[in-house]
Write a protein that binds this DNA or RNA. Structure first.
Lengths: 162, 162
DNA sequence: AATGGTGATGTTATAACATAACAACCTGAA
DNA sequence: TTCAGGTTGTTATGTTATAACATCACCATT
């Protein structure tokens, strides 16, 4: 699970994963500084944990790893760090799995769409135009969209073969 | 919460709600007969409960009402009926709320999209083309979509005013 | 009528996910 | 120093969901 070619963005797409992780962390560093919020050890480590796999991890899975490293052992520790990351746009919650993934382009404010492989559990974020699905219908009916959840489950290219 | 004009389809759109409920129930009756599955009292009643409001109800809310009517009091009773309804396409699970709504057009196989009002909790199902958001990107990457979750949260026309 | 299969329901227990509430701590400003 | 704000530690509990097994009702066959 440690691929080291480089091409595209995330998930089940081949990419230089080491850079992917360290880049994301430094971008988060920068954004936190800019926003004057604290990127504490727990928060940083949780983001790193999410980045290590491109899988969706449940809060309790994250917590297990934190506990192993003595960074916290009670649910609120994990949930607090995860909420922080989600608030800052460094991670997203996957509703369909009650789980979380690192965001692959945290700088832009985005309405993300996800493709979730039910076999290997990896998640790819399709950037951009999440609410394309709603734009017209929402304005027709007068519904004011505040947030969208757009998730596809299925099989990723790698798992389709197998 | 008992409107009796008639026009469109569901949710926060005005419609003849009495017919809406009874129609949906008879269509479910018919479909169950056709499919040779049992539309038992609990299942029927749960669908009716969902139809009564266009709100998303949690399993335990449904269960409360069942219990009040001596139709069952333990979680599995509600969850089983709800799974049945979802399998048959008579209801949908709203991932963003851990809750369930009656489906407004159960005959067609559909990839539904929902607009969920965070104020009044009503849900409108935008029929049809759910996976529009994914079609191209999924085929480009070779991801095989099996199911989509498309949900917008926000304010419905009625609640925007208030 | 007895038998046995199938699908539905009843029930117990527990798993998995999530948060309220309060205490302790740390850091930086007044 | 003292205070305020934000973060973390901890307890306890709330909420959502399912596994596993017992029972029942119905129908078909013997």
């Amino acid at each position: 699970m440690t691929d080291t070619s480089h091409s595209a963005v995330n998930g089940f797409v081949q990419h230089d994963h080491t850079h992917c992780v360290s880049d994301a962390l430094s971008r988060a560093d920068a954004l936190c500084a800019e926003r004057k919020v604290q990127f504490t050890p727990v928060r940083r480590r949780v983001l790193e944990i999410l980045l290590e796999t491109h899988k969706a991890l449940g809060a309790y899975e994250v917590l297990e790893r934190l506990a192993a490293e003595r960074l916290g052992s009670k649910p609120p520790v994990a949930y607090r760090a995860l909420s922080f990351l989600v608030e800052q746009g460094f991670a997203h919650r996957i509703e369909g799995l009650n789980a979380f993934v690192a965001c692959t382009h945290p700088e832009q404010d985005h309405a993300p769409a996800f493709m979730i492989c039910r076999s290997c559990n990896k998640v790819t974020e399709a950037s951009g135009k999440g609410d394309g699905s709603f734009g017209s219908i929402a304005t027709e009916t007068g519904f004011v969209i505040e947030q969208t959840v757009i998730e596809a489950q299925g099989l990723c290219p790698n798992c389709v073969e197998a």
